[in-house]
Amino acid sequence: MSSELDNEQELPQQHAVTIHDVARAAGVTIGTVSKALNGQGKLKEETRERVRAVALRLGFRPNDLAQSLLRGRSFTVGLITTDSYGRFSIPLMSGIEDALGSAQISVFLCDARDDAVREQQHINSLLAKRVDGIIVTGRRIDARVPIDVGNTNTPVLYAYAQVKEADALCLLPDEAQGARIATEHLLAHGRRRLAHITGPSYFEAVQLRQEAMRQVLKEHGLDLPGHRALAGPWQEAWGHRAVGFLLEMDPGIDGIFCGSDQIARGVVDALRERGVKVPADVAVVGFDNWEIIAAATRPALTTVDMNLHELGRIAGTRLLAMIAGEKASGIIRLPCSLIVRDSCGVHTLGTAERRKEDQGD
């Protein structure tokens, strides 16, 4: 019998190492190699370790498809998104991979781009790869059409996306709770004449946040009149323009809760241009904690963080349980956090306190 070293040297330089090569180099049968590498069968530990060492030296990589057929698992999942910019899908995917990494599961990211045909092509491709499960996400929480996995029984979970199917599991940030903590923070800093500048009113997130803000104000004996609740596009330019409308109608505004950090940045810039100091005259709170915008705004934005990384981690954990056979359904809303920065921070004076300070009281 030739030595293992001799057998390894006989392999062509560009040869794709096969299980036959490993068996020949280790001086064992193909069946023994399979058992050793898959942790199956009754083998001496010495034989198992020797085969593994030879496979490692030769650079042998098991065929994933063959392995998946053997184990009944591919140890991959699909992540389908319509968020082409990655604003929401990237932190979500980071959390998903944190949850799945310990289980040695890889994630295929597929960009559907709001194209139903393209999305179904991705689904078909993922199913052909025998993925263990699929997570569907997007760039808004409004209800979407459920994906079709045919009769494969592949577990599907929606994260930062939802469908109306009763047996679907959907994980969402708690938009109302996020608006509540933003409003309570402004009130805690003495602000009483609050305004809300946000995105299009047909978005579910916009509706949930505005209703929560009104409820908090009502609990404090305050209100949010229609002229102080302005809806427009999710754009910095809209925030900038809305400030002009707002101050013209109600120059006594002392706090603004914005529906996104982009809108908030436009608000802050417009206030500065008008000689209104933030937060001394008007405190501003954003939504999203998009750090590239929130931290770069001057002053830096206090904002609501939807905790998308944590939402992704929980989505990954729940999908693992579904792959293992657990049945789960319903809409689960996960709490947001408030990130306090300078636009409405711990050192912000309330209106009454400012007046006392100005008067030397």
Rank of each mutant, 00 (worst) to 15 (best):
H189A: 02
G244Y: 01
D174W: 03
I197V: 14
G255N: 06
V149R: 09
E211K: 15
S201E: 03
Q177V: 00
T152H: 05
I147Q: 02
T183R: 03
L222H: 10
Y202E: 15
W234S: 08
Q210Y: 01
E211L: 14
L169G: 09
R180F: 01
E165H: 05
F203T: 02
A212H: 01
Q215Y: 01
G221P: 06
A176M: 08
L172I: 10
V216M: 06
R192Y: 04
D223N: 10
I256A: 03
I181Q: 05
L247H: 11
T152R: 13
G221F: 08
L157S: 09
L187K: 07
L186M: 07
L169N: 09
L171K: 07
A166I: 06
P146M: 13
A205D: 11
H185L: 01
D167W: 01
G232N: 04
V156D: 03
R214P: 11
P173N: 06
M249F: 06
L186C: 08
R209L: 03
K218S: 13
D250N: 13
L187S: 10
A179V: 05
L224K: 06
L246C: 13
H189W: 06
D167Y: 02
M213N: 00
L194I: 15
F257T: 04
V149Y: 12
G150F: 04
H227N: 15
Y158I: 05
E184R: 13
A159F: 03
R241Q: 14
L169V: 11
R180T: 14
K218P: 01
H227T: 10
G150T: 06
Q207M: 12
K164E: 15
G178Y: 04
G178N: 00
R180W: 08
L169P: 08
V149A: 12
F257H: 12
R192T: 13
A237G: 08
A161M: 03
R214E: 15
H196C: 12
G252M: 11
G199N: 02
L187N: 05
G190F: 02
I256R: 09
H240Q: 13
G255E: 07
L208F: 02
A159M: 09
P146N: 11
A179T: 02
G239N: 12
A242F: 11
A161R: 14
H185E: 03
Q215W: 00
L194E: 01
P200D: 07
H196N: 13
I256G: 10
E236W: 11
Y158G: 05
Q215P: 00
V145N: 12
E219L: 08
D148L: 06
G178V: 02
V156N: 02
F245V: 01
L217H: 12
L194P: 04
L172F: 05
T154Y: 00
Y158M: 05
R228Q: 14
A176P: 08
A242V: 08
T154G: 00
L230I: 15
G199A: 12
W238S: 13
S201F: 00
A231W: 00
L169R: 04
Q210K: 11
Q215F: 00
I253T: 15
L187F: 10
L230D: 13
A161H: 04
V163R: 03
P225M: 12
R192H: 12
L157R: 07
E184A: 07
G232H: 04
R192K: 14
A195E: 05
Q162Y: 00
H220N: 14
A166C: 01
G232W: 07
E248N: 14
P225N: 03
L246A: 13
F245R: 10
R191L: 12
